[in-house]
Write a protein that binds this DNA or RNA. Structure first.
Length: 119
DNA sequence: ACAATGACATAAG
DNA sequence: GCTTATGCCATTG
């Protein structure tokens, strides 16, 4: 973004994030594993970082591997509110029960087919 | 092309 | 369970 030639990487990330159903959450690593390699987790966060709140991408459903919100204290409140509005419960430490709310992800055939669209 | 950065992840102490 | 150290990837200066 910020440039005419937006790398497909960000678009891929957005596309996957849009597939996360309401009331469920996914981790950065999970998204990275679908769009690219496992190590791209940081890049996923970078992609969502510049995303406007009014975007069609449910960025709030993407959290870190500990089930916690990784934003600075600033946007964390917003994200928490959005998720709570979808039925996601937070514990006292502001963490989500991943075992219960984590997005199952895509099946291998689906991932394969999805990647075929970009490659 | 090199060095630094960032909404991460995992292993080790 | 929390803190520290190391790895990974793409973007940016």
């Amino acid at each position: 973004m910020t440039q005419p030639n937006t790398p497909n990487f960000f678009e891929r990330i957005y596309q996957v994030v849009r597939m996360i159903p309401p009331g469920q959450v996914a981790t950065y690593g999970q998204i990275a594993e679908i769009v690219s390699h496992r190590g791209a987790a940081r890049t996923v966060g970078w992609a969502l970082h510049g995303l406007p709140e009014s975007s069609d991408v449910p960025w709030q459903r993407v959290i870190n591997g500990r089930g916690e919100i990784s934003l600075g204290r600033h946007g964390s409140a917003v994200q928490r509110a959005l998720l709570e509005g979808e039925g996601v419960a937070f514990d006292r430490q502001g963490r989500v029960d991943l075992a219960r709310y984590q997005w199952p992800g895509l099946d291998w055939p689906d991932i394969e087919d999805l990647r075929a669209t970009w490659t």
